[in-house]
Computed example of a mutant assay.
Amino acid sequence: MAPVTTLYASLIALLFLALSLRVVAYRRARQISLGDAGDPALRARIRAQGNCAEYAPIGLLLLLLVELQSAPPVALHVLGLLLLAGRVLHGLALSRHPHPMVLRVGGMILTFTMIGLAALGLLLHRLI
């Protein structure tokens, strides 16, 4: 049905799960139930997880829509890899202290590039 989107959705779901487990493990180790208790390391882990939750769904939705428009597989994989790599780089950046800005910025550039290319491609496909 949508094999390329299924592949990237599965990989990004595993990434999200890993980011979530890092938050849970840190909370358990520090006995922090709610919020971040002013702990900058926990705050960074929460933001890494939250940022993935904020950007991955729109990227995956756009990838699915592009796939449903019968885009060439190579285009789908380029978009999927941009999204996956962007989310991995961003998650890695927020998982380290201090945050390596090159990874964080690189992750956002890749994610924004994927979202922009997919959105423009869909728009042009509809208008032309």
Rank of each mutant, 00 (worst) to 15 (best):
M1N: 05
M1Q: 05
A2I: 14
P3C: 13
P3R: 13
T5A: 08
L7R: 08
A9Q: 03
S10E: 05
L11T: 03
I12C: 12
L14V: 08
L14W: 04
L17A: 05
L17F: 05
A18R: 00
L19S: 05
L19N: 08
L21R: 06
R27M: 04
R28A: 07
R28P: 00
A29M: 03
A29Y: 01
Q31M: 06
G35K: 01
G35D: 02
D36K: 04
G38F: 12
D39K: 04
D39N: 05
R43G: 08
I46D: 00
I46K: 07
A48E: 02
N51I: 15
A53I: 09
Y55P: 02
A56P: 04
A56Q: 03
P57M: 12
I58F: 11
I58A: 07
L61S: 00
L64Y: 07
L64Q: 04
L65F: 06
L65W: 08
E67Y: 02
L68H: 10
L68M: 11
L68V: 13
A71D: 00
P72A: 15
P72C: 12
P72N: 15
P73K: 09
L76E: 01
H77A: 10
H77L: 12
L79Q: 07
L82V: 08
G86M: 04
R87N: 11
R87K: 08
L89I: 00
L89F: 01
G91Y: 09
L92V: 15
L94P: 00
S95D: 03
H97V: 12
P98F: 05
P100F: 10
M101T: 13
V102H: 11
G106V: 09
G106F: 10
G107D: 10
L110I: 12
T111A: 15
F112A: 07
M114T: 06
I115P: 02
A119N: 09
A119L: 09
L120R: 00
L122I: 15
L122W: 14
L124E: 11
L124F: 15
L124H: 15
R126Q: 02
L127Q: 01
